[in-house]
Design a protein around this nucleic acid. Sequence first.
DNA 1: CGTATCCTTGACGTGCGTCAAAGACCGTGG
DNA 2: CCACGGTCTTTGACGCACGTCAAGGATACG
Lengths: 226, 226
Amino acid sequence: MYVTVPNEFFPQAGKPIYRQRQSDKQSRVKERALITGQTLFREGDRADYVYEVVSGVMRLTRVLENGQRQVISFGYPGDVIGFPRNGRYHTECDVISAGTVKMYRRDALHSCATDVALHKFLTESALEEIALMQDHFLMLGRKTAKEKLASFLIALMNRAGTPLGQYKKIKLPMSRSDIADFLGLTTETVSRTVSEFRHKNIIALDDAHTVIVLEEDELLKIAYSN
Amino acid sequence: MYVTVPNEFFPQAGKPIYRQRQSDKQSRVKERALITGQTLFREGDRADYVYEVVSGVMRLTRVLENGQRQVISFGYPGDVIGFPRNGRYHTECDVISAGTVKMYRRDALHSCATDVALHKFLTESALEEIALMQDHFLMLGRKTAKEKLASFLIALMNRAGTPLGQYKKIKLPMSRSDIADFLGLTTETVSRTVSEFRHKNIIALDDAHTVIVLEEDELLKIAYSN
DNA sequence: CGTATCCTTGACGTGCGTCAAAGACCGTGG
DNA sequence: CCACGGTCTTTGACGCACGTCAAGGATACG
């Protein structure tokens, strides 16, 4: 089995594949290749498409007037991103890790005239998104730096971790400041907390962007006990 | 004009009435009266209905294992609440202030077979909800106690404020701890910050649950300048 | 190989949480 | 009508987790 704890960031982890749309092969769905650093859409752009991440990792952000940034979420394969509001995107989407996305015309969200299954898929995804974000509120509002980081690593491990002997390896394609802006911390605090986990032998680092989880139980305890 | 600033909590403030569904009078939509303290639904309940608040104020909360509580949002007239995930509610909904709700069968969310306009209304509301929550992330992640409270009061004023001479009056039907759990603070900090605003003559209190906004500009400055 | 960016670590200050106690308010029953 | 207990709000004292400022080390890219 896959998901052992409430997975706040990536609730789809370990889900059956019913969200994968098999019918896409025959119906011709446009795909688009994306390179690292590219911007898929900006806040305020007219939202002609809703995207499903096929591969790669995306970052969704909002910016305050004063330049403060909040990372809303990271888009992993299977995630649907770019839900519009009043026909426009309300976040910016940047490509953290090269990949491809499927493009669905926006009207598929509102009308089931053309494709009933697609419509249902997209509305379900929107509801999923709401639930997911509600979970993240708990995180931002109430958790300490340690709890936040532990939760984040667990979520990422469940979603995108790869086995490494008896351990699990996590690739962190995003920067420390991305993580900080996602968790409502500073880069320094993220870095310090990572170091703390490392010194306690809960995790090990291959490099700054590759984490090996040595003591999953300990991470779980930190994330959810207090 | 009504809305002068990005309204994080209640983005519908000052919106035209296109979200009000005129057709409901002829089609018979079930309504339900609610008394203060009542629980409309609980986390995990099967979500047979999606609700639209007609009058009164609702509180949507999630609870952690350890008893910590996060107030996800307050439901004011015009808000749609109770979006399901996998057919179940993922928040608890309690009635803070007596009122009524319209009841829409859940399948109206997924299918436009029965009522196209209703379906569109509900999916639009869901997208609206997503945008709204993203705004709230900025709040929880990055703002100070003063900024949080100022933003909250402004949002409430725009959404539900009533004129009082040259000033605006805000009824706060929720408790201090509800506000705290919404903003990711403690009751003590909320109380202290309210007192601070009061001593600086930015606001005045009729009683603990009735705020008069004396210096709207000052509140705005606090909420959005820094 | 050089430069810009990212990450880490240290020292320090402070905003807000914690603990505690004293009003204020509200409903209930005598 | 007043007495009384419970809950909610306010205020104070104190400590700590995390932000801020600063500098050195690692990594990536041209």
